[in-house]
Design a protein around this nucleic acid. Structure first.
Length: 644
RNA sequence: GCCAGCGUAGCUCAGCUGGAAGAGCAGCUGAUUUGUAAUCAGCAGGUCAUGGGUUCGAAUCCCUUCGCUGGCUCCA
């Protein structure tokens, strides 16, 4: 340790002096031995470090106890080392890749000569437990860059060598526990005995540095939490997500199906699934009508020249489907914008018409790599709730604000909260930076005026303009990207769009591309999982299921059904020869909001006995009063039952 | 596309180290007339994803193709 003293401040007026390079571990050992079982790290001048890292200058420190903010990071990081150590014990020829912490856990990439599978995970977990039980002391040491490279070469850690070569610092740090040594910047726990709450999840392939030209390593994913209850809670949510899987529920509820042999990445909507989709469209149309949108329809297949002019040919060709007809090349549309532009250009436009808002439920096709297709969430053909607003530059801000209002309304219908992200100019882009800056400034102004928080993603915009993305949060806390608003100064330029201004001169309009659900298919998948298949009544494919007890009740049941049907309530009669309890069970599994049981009592009193899918028995209700209640529930797009 | 796992009846799955393709649910037929999460009986249903190979013999072992599932830069 150096001779110079450093002052360590524990609070405003409480400090102690130590030798330079003192570590948290030493401070605790010397002056706070009672904390040695609790503290796992330090916040030094607000930066998280572990107890192994030397402190070289006067600092203000706070102790980070297990369970405090930041401790999870340390916990998981050390576990990734423990996993690496276990894997190296079981597969000695393993070379290490990287092992970062991630949301809810961590992973480590290995180059293992043997192929491992999920079946190997229990063995690895066992080995990890041994390392934890041994409570190995963790040590940190530093080496000059060239020495570090030399050492890693000797160890045969070729990937680590590459990592160090890319690091600019003169000195790099290593961590050691038992006979395991790894290049690492930390932070790490004091020893391996602390980290008991983890579970290995799965094995997968992952390219070195995510580049498909690099060798593929084997990645092991794991989850870990500081407390046992948090780990169990997380595993429960994962289990819940599995149960709600929209692919499973889609088959069970007879909503849609997939037939990859005839149409990979495409959806077949069954009658009940289409009811849901059409309801989504209905509320969407109503809102757009209210906001002055005009719905249009443009062709699915358009000539190559259009796509060249729009820039898709240069920037989006790899995702497009093509077809040759009469010696000309046509492309299946991956986006609707060029079609909308054609309609805009079909006649002269005046400033008095602006903003022009064209909406279209356009069916678009985008080629996606086979491996990424996933139920309704990632498909090759889908319905986009697209719209393009053609307006003047002065109108941009108010138009963006209006779109955010519509989004707020639509997402609210399903009980989603959401957050917003602004993405700026990507590397592959059209147009000059000045135009991009102007567009970005406009979007920021609109976002700021909503008073809501948003995040900025540098370089994530579309090739023709910056954008705002909307992420919704579902009922089990997962985030989904849905809506998007994209500002575009370039397409109007390319297509030489004009309007005649009050000065009788030609001007260039601005285009705003926007989708709110994003993809109707995907949004529906999200809804299925969000509601676990139990749609609110207005969305439910069948809203009332009538369950007559015996044959003699069929006539009355059918009369009730036809009455409900005439009130535009979606109703089904279960006239099968089964016991009532059986019919109730089936309706329950189908998650029909209302069951109407009909027996002798109901027939003679002109009532129906209502049971909710929650299991609640409401008992006999006069038919008219039921109709009034449910109609109101449907018309107000209520998320909850009128009887609960 | 790449890595790993998987593909048996409409659905969920069993089928061991190779030796006659099974169950439950759903469907159909009949009995039963049922009061809030599964009435009983019978019948029917399969080129074991595909093509090839090993073998006296393959759902099972090996290879090909197709498909599905989980992943494929939250950087030491």
């Amino acid at each position: 340790m150096g001779g110079l003293d450093v002052k360590i401040w524990f609070s405003q007026d409480d400090f102690k002096e130590y030798g330079e390079g003192i570590t948290g571990k030493e401070i605790i050992k010397r002056d706070f031995p009672e904390l040695s079982k609790e503290v796992v790290g330090l916040k030094v001048n607000n930066e998280l470090i572990d107890l192994h890292t030397p402190i070289k200058k006067d600092s203000r420190i706070e102790f980070v106890r297990l369970g405090d903010k930041g401790s999870e990071e340390i916990y998981r990081h050390t576990l990734s080392h423990v996993m690496a150590q276990a894997v190296k014990r079981l597969f000695p020829d393993t070379k290490l890749g990287i092992g970062p912490t991630i949301e809810n856990g961590f992973y480590y990439d290995f180059d293992i000569p043997d192929r491992i599978s999920d079946d190997d995970l229990p063995r690895i977990e066992e080995e990890m437990k041994k390392i934890v039980d041994a409570d190995l002391e963790i040590e940190r040491f530093e080496l000059p860059r060239n020495k570090a490279i030399e050492k890693l070469r000797e160890m045969g850690e070729i990937y680590k060598v590459k990592l160090v070569e890319d690091i600019n610092d003169d000195v790099v740090s290593f961590y050691k526990q038992g006979d395991f040594i790894d290049l690492c910047k930390g932070p790490h726990m004091p020893s391996t005995g602390w980290i008991k709450n983890f579970k290995l999840l799965n094995v997968s392939g992952a390219y070195w540095r995510g580049d498909e030209r690099n060798p593929m390593l084997q990645r092991i994913y794991a989850t870990a939490f500081v407390t046992k209850s948090a780990l169990e809670e997380y595993l429960k949510v994962m289990e819940e997500a599995r149960k709600r899987d929209h692919r499973k529920l889609g088959t069970q509820l007879d909503l849609y199906s997939f037939h990859p042999d005839v149409a990979p990445g495409m959806v077949f909507f069954h009658p009940k699934g289409l009811v849901v989709k059409n309801e989504l469209i209905r509320v969407w149309r109503d809102k757009h009508h209210e906001k002055g949108y005009q719905e249009i329809q443009t062709p699915l297949i358009l000539n190559e020249s259009l796509w060249r002019r729009s820039g898709h040919w240069d920037h989006y060709k790899n995702n497009m489907y093509f077809s040759k007809i009469d010696n000309a090349t046509y492309a299946v549309k991956p986006m609707n914008c060029p079609g909308h532009i054609i309609i805009y250009k079909s006649k002269m436009r005046s400033y008095r018409e602006l903003p022009i808002k064209f909406s279209e439920l356009g069916i678009v096709h985008r080629y996606e790599k086979g491996g990424v297709l996933h139920g309704l969430m990632r498909v090759r053909g889908f319905t986009q709730d697209d719209a393009h607003v053609f307006c003047t530059e002065e109108q941009i801000k108010e138009q963006i604000i209006e779109i955010i209002e519509i989004i707020d309304y639509l997402y609210g219908l399903f009980g989603f909260s959401y957050n917003m992200e602004l993405s700026t100019m990507p590397e592959d882009h059209m147009g000059d930076e000045k135009t991009w800056d102007k567009a970005t400034v406009e979007l920021k102004a609109a976002l700021n005026s909503t008073g809501k928080e948003y995040v900025i993603n540098e370089g994530e915009g579309a090739f023709y303009g910056p954008k705002i993305d909307f992420h919704i949060k579902d009922s089990i806390g997962r985030l989904w990207q849905c809506g998007t608003i994209q500002l575009d100064f370039l397409m109007p330029e390319r297509f030489e769009l004009t309007y005649i201004g009050a000065d009788n001169k030609e001007h260039r309009p601005v285009m705003i591309h926007r989708a709110l659900y994003g993809s109707l298919e995907r949004f529906m998948g999200i809804l299925v999982e969000h509601f676990g298949g139990a749609f609110p009544t207005w969305l439910a494919p069948i809203q009332v299921k009538i369950l007559p007890i015996a044959d003699r009740h069929f006539e009355y049941a059918r009369a009730v059904a036809s009455k409900l049907d005439s009130e535009r309530i979606r109703v089904e009669v279960d006239a099968r020869d089964r016991k009532t309890s059986y019919k109730v069970r089936e309706a329950q599994i189908e998650k029909v909001p209302y069951m109407a049981i009909i027996g002798d009592r109901e027939v003679s009193n002109n009532t129906i006995a209502i049971r909710l899918r929650s299991g609640k028995d409401i008992g006999p209700q006069p038919l008219d009063s039921f109709i009034n209640k449910i109609k109101e529930e449907i018309e107000t797009l209520s998320l909850t039952s009128a009887y609960e």
